[in-house]
């Protein structure tokens, strides 16, 4: 059984710059994998390697069982790609452009109309792309990537420039594609939006993979503390502290709120105590470490090596 995307010790150097340096990972059907890293970490180069637009200096890339650099037509037909800052010729209309791409994939022109409907661009289909907003262009870009129900979707920074509502819509579409068995690989540096949307996260830094796993797995590895906040009635913070036995690290935020950064092993003990009969709090909030913290943790770990 081979994976839809398989990278084995892939490296791509431009002169002395190691854009990608020995990255291995694979992605199976129905998986959503996020490539995370700051600008210049090698995300776009990795995607270009998977598209066959760049050739690896060493290592091997396989997409749908083929080397993408061969440019195999049957593989390309089952591949969707949304480039970073997608652009189209501004003098053509959305419908003309999408029809062109639909036909280029050997599909019937009618599919373009259905896709325009699906991404909510039907009303602007016959307007020139030059009049489109950034969000509309991005949606058109997504529509062209969805042509022919691809088995692999490569999305480079798909949500930059989208407002929150469009972002939700976008991840809705990603979930639908995932349910239909598509492998979705998306790169991002907006980490927080990946929560609940990406099954797996691959963190890249300076061309190297520094972490790979589901968000929960990464949290376990990172052993980052969970922030727990207890709120009581006015002036109750002192009573809260006494009730909890003045544990180390407990901070008083104001008269009625206390907070602690609980390590994974201490979290359960803290909660048991807090949940005892008659505990003097009205509300409890738990904030698990976000991706930003995770990312910072793994980057710091690499720097200290």
């Amino acid at each position: 059984m081979s994976f839809n995307i398989e990278l084995d010790a892939v490296a791509r150097h431009y002169g002395s710059v190691k854009a990608v340096d020995g990255v291995s990972f694979s992605a199976d059907a129905g998986e959503v994998v996020a490539l995370v890293g700051h600008n210049g970490a090698g995300k776009t180069t990795l995607i270009k390697l998977m598209l066959g637009l760049a050739r690896p200096t060493s290592g091997s890339v396989s997409v749908l069982g083929q080397d993408p650099a061969d440019g195999d037509v049957t593989v390309r037909r089952r591949l969707g790609y949304l480039p970073e800052n997608v652009s189209f010729n501004p003098v053509l209309t959305g419908r003309e452009t999408l029809r062109f791409y639909v036909q280029l994939k050997g599909r019937r022109p009618k599919e373009a109309d259905a896709l325009l409907e699906r991404i909510g661009l039907a009303h602007a289909a016959d307007r020139r792309i030059g009049t489109y907003s950034k969000g509309m262009r991005q949606r058109l870009g997504l529509a062209q990537a969805m042509i022919g129900k691809p088995a692999v979707l490569l999305l480079d920074e798909p949500t930059t420039g989208l407002d929150p509502e469009l972002r939700q819509q976008f991840y809705g579409i990603v979930r639908e594609m995932q349910a239909a068995g598509t492998t979705v690989l998306l790169s991002s540096h907006a980490l927080n939006e990946l929560e609940g949307n990406a099954g797996r996260v691959v963190i890249l830094d300076e061309g190297r993979k520094i972490a790979d796993g589901s968000l929960d797995e990464l949290r376990r590895i990172a052993r980052l503390p969970t922030r727990i906040r207890l709120t009581s009635g006015e002036g109750g913070a002192r009573r809260l502290r006494e009730w909890m036995g003045e544990p180390k690290g407990l901070r008083q935020i104001n008269g009625h709120i206390v907070e602690i950064d609980a390590t994974p092993e201490y979290k359960a003990a803290f909660l048991r105590r807090a949940a005892g009969e008659g505990a003097p709090f009205e509300d409890l909030d738990m904030v698990p470490p976000g991706l930003d913290e995770l990312y910072a943790h793994f980057l710091a770990g690499r720097a200290s090596q």
Binding site: L53, R76, L79, P83, N85, V86, Y101, L104
Partner: peptide, 14 residues
Amino acid sequence: ERGTMTLLLSYPVR
């Protein structure tokens, strides 16, 4: 330069 070539070449086009 406009970035349209990358997209075009990701299609089944030589």
